[in-house]
Write a protein that binds this DNA or RNA. Structure first.
Length: 419
DNA sequence: TCTGGGGTCCTAGGACCC
DNA sequence: TCTGGGGTCCTAGGACCC
């Protein structure tokens, strides 16, 4: 049996956890730039706030109902996530961290008739100790566990645990679930399935597996098997190495000039390069893209992209910034109102077996020394204490975050400031 | 006026090889 | 009038996830 542990309304729960006065009140969390809703407390859902709705559509609704809105605070959520995952490991030996607020766990080796009691106890303690309510779903496959989790949330909210451990329960669960609510079925595939008479998870579990592969793909075929109780998607206990590291952000205000855009790009590149070094990787390539606002009906649209190969796979920030800005120069055109710029490091590999370059070895050693010292200074004194000149200081492109909560768990000075 | 960010996997088709 | 067959690798784009 496989379980999935999922935090309820994770970001909203994090915000509320640190401000007891918000208990029982409707709370929402905004996307970057305070643009759209990405998390809602139960009370906010009940008031009709939908997922991903633009904030300017619900300004009135929020005011009328005293809904509290927060800019997203990923430092806080990331730290809470770490704590919860560490508690999960007190109860489960084999864990796959699947997303910031979800972990798959193996329930193999648990005595069957004690499973519910054990999991229920774990669920209560994880919720209580972290302050974030969680739900646990269990089934024979990951897809069935996800289904069980939905049922735990919807029908057994107080209990917070649901186990699909019999054929009757499996069939009932499948029949009660829309096909588009099945893990792995999005809106496109969902529509196509509807058009051939597949409406709920049960219908999908009954289709011919080979037909599913022929008409759709091996991905759908696996889902069909998983719904039948045949496991096709194994637990991944070791986190696979990242293949790409990307950063893109919308600007707080439109940018038209090259300079501020390249400044933003240099900053995003510094971030992805930091992540790269943290994982002890080097990048063989780098891609850069630019974009106008695709929601605008009047603006001229432009979404150029450029990919380049590094001379030598590297993790050296100044080189990566130079490369990225060169790319930007190629794709930038005057006369557009730009909404975002992004950068992706590609062709990642372990830096111990990275390609060597006969003519570069000495320079590389020097770079390693420099960047180690820069990382250390920044770790001790705060991000970007030492930075590339191209990162600049003006930051007129920076995103909007007008309702940011303090970094309660990671930054003492923030807490002092609100007092 | 105002609509997020960071990922993965799969497939089809082109380029290329012998 | 008539011009092969079998294979690999790479990339762009689509679909999905949270």
């Amino acid at each position: 049996m496989i379980g999935i542990i999922d935090c309820n309304n994770f970001y909203a729960s994090c915000e509320r956890n640190f401000d007891p006065s918000l208990k029982g009140l409707p709370v929402v969390v905004f996307s970057n730039n305070d643009g759209a809703v990405i998390a809602r407390s139960e009370e906010a859902k009940a008031l009709g706030i939908t997922m991903a709705v633009p904030i300017f559509h619900i300004k009135e609704l929020m005011k009328k109902n005293d809904i509290i809105g927060y800019s997203s605070n990923y430092t806080l959520y990331g730290d809470m996530s770490k704590r919860i995952k560490s508690i999960i490991r007190d109860f489960f030996k084999d864990v796959e961290d699947y997303s910031i607020d979800e972990s798959f766990v193996s329930c193999k080796g648990f005595k069957y008739r004690n499973l519910f009691n054990y999991v229920k106890d774990a669920r209560d303690k994880i919720s209580h100790w972290s302050g974030i309510p969680v739900s646990i779903g269990i089934g024979e496959t990951k897809t069935l566990a996800k289904l069980a989790n939905r049922i735990a949330k919807k029908q057994y909210r107080e209990v917070g645990v649901y186990i699909i451990d019999s054929e009757e329960k499996r069939i009932a669960a499948l029949k009660a679930t829309d096909v588009t609510d099945v893990w792995g079925i999005g809106s496109r595939i969902g529509k196509r399935l509807n058009s051939v008479g597949v409406f709920n998870a049960y219908d999908l579990s009954m289709v011919d597996e080979d037909w599913a592969k022929r008409q759709f793909s091996v991905v759908l075929q696996r889902t069909v098997y998983e719904l039948q109780g045949v496991s096709c998607i194994p637990l991944e206990l070791v986190q696979p190495d990242k293949q790409n590291i990307a950063s893109q952000k919308s600007f707080g205000i439109y940018q038209t000039e090259f300079e501020p855009i390249s400044e933003a790009l240099a900053n995003y590149t510094a971030r992805v390069a930091e992540k790269l070094r943290k994982q002890k990787f080097v990048a063989g390539g780098i891609s850069v893209w630019l974009g106008t606002n695709n929601f605008s009906k009047t603006d001229a649209q432009y979404f150029p992209e450029i990919s380049t190969v590094c001379d030598v796979p590297t993790d050296y920030t100044p080189y990566l910034i130079k490369r990225a800005v060169e790319g930007l120069k190629v794709i930038y055109r005057k006369g557009y109102r730009y909404k975002r710029v992004g950068v992706m490091l590609t062709d990642l590999r372990n830096n111990s077996d990275g390609t060597q370059n006969l003519f570069h070895a000495n320079a590389r050693n020097k770079e390693i020394e420099i960047i180690k010292k820069v990382d250390r200074l920044n770790r001790l004194n705060g991000r970007d204490t030492v930075r590339s000149a191209q990162q600049g200081f003006a930051r007129e492109w920076k995103m909007k975050q007008e309702h940011l909560s303090p970094k309660y768990t990671t930054r003492l000075s923030d807490i002092i400031n609100i007092r």
